[in-house]
């Protein structure tokens, strides 16, 4: 009966993942390996960026007239924020579908999302990356890693650490069923600062991590060290988010740009 319960939990979490995220690894890989009828539009310089802004991300850029006179770096930063906000909303819905999450104290739900969403976001971003670039605008565009690196500082430092993480993470060859459980494990984490009902969350975390372990054994029978490797990735993601939060604070202080209110809430008093 216990194994049956674990399989049910794995299935519920996987279904919630497929239902709530607009992009997933399977879709992203289809696009990145050229198996779609229309390939993504490649953004590799200022000219192709402007073309993409007029078509693919017109809604994001056009939503604020204040962006018109800003430089490319600030406009790209704004688009990154829009994508992050969309993913945070998707992650919130996903979290609510994880069995037990909605029964938690509301303050604890807020805390788990505050600390978990960026780790989850960067883990899922890896699905949209290859060594040369990143899918953007729901898979209709592809921005090159070289172009992102060529932006002026500090914006040029924004994506490169995520590419470096993604290349190592992608070598683990997880599929969407593994990622669904991994993302749930990131969110239901008992050691976030300020949690009220730690034992409750620890019990949830324990069941999800057990299910992840069991699932990896059956889905990747030849890779016996995959589970400990993934646990290490949880540590790496925490570091990646700490550095990202510092960079965002630096950009906020030194650049003429604004931060979305939802992201402001998340970053405030974070680390």
């Amino acid at each position: 009966p216990q194994v049956a319960d674990q399989k049910t939990l794995a299935k519920q979490i996987y279904e919630a993942y497929l239902k709530n995220f607009n992009m997933n690894k399977s879709k992203a890989r289809t696009i990145l390996t050229g198996k779609t009828s229309t390939p993504p539009f490649v953004i590799h310089d200022m000219e192709t960026l402007q073309l993409a802004e007029q078509t693919l991300v017109a809604k994001m850029v056009g939503s604020s007239g204040a962006l018109l006179n800003k430089d490319a770096e600030v406009r790209i930063f704004h688009c990154c924020q829009c994508t992050s906000v969309e993913t945070v909303t998707e992650l919130t819905e996903f979290a609510k579908s994880v069995p037990g999450f909605s029964n938690l104290d509301l303050n604890d739900q807020v805390t788990l999302l505050k600390y978990g969403v960026h780790e989850a976001l960067f883990a899922m971003l890896a699905s949209c990356m290859n060594k040369d670039g990143l899918l953007v605008a729901h898979g209709s565009g592809f921005i090159t890693r070289e172009f992102l690196k060529s932006l002026r500082r500090p914006f040029s430092q924004m994506m490169e650490p995520k590419f470096q993480f993604a290349m190592k993470f992608n070598s683990l060859e997880l599929d969407d069923s593994d990622l669904a459980l991994f993302v749930a494990a990131i969110i239901c984490c008992g050691d976030r600062p300020g949690l009220v009902n730690v034992p409750h969350i620890e019990r949830m975390q324990e069941s999800i991590v057990n299910v992840l372990h069991l699932h990896l054994k059956s889905n990747h029978p030849d890779n016996e060290f995959l589970f400990p490797k993934l646990l290490q990735k949880l540590v790496d993601l925490r570091q990646l988010v700490t550095e990202h939060a510092q960079l965002v604070q630096e950009i906020k202080k030194t650049e003429d740009t604004s931060l979305h209110p939802l992201l402001q809430e998340i970053y405030r008093d974070m680390y």
Binding site: K59, M60, S63, C82, V85, E86, V88, T89, T92, E93, K96, L106, N107, Q109, V110, T111, L113, K114, G194, H260, P261, L262, E265, I266, R268, D269
Partner: peptide, 21 residues
């Protein structure tokens, strides 16, 4: 905590209210 995270709180309580981009 809920007071300091009004948008997250709203998303948790009401999924049908979108966040402006």
């Amino acid at each position: 905590l809920k007071e300091k995270h009004k948008i997250l709180h709203r998303l948790l309580q009401n999924s049908s209210s979108p966040v402006d981009l």
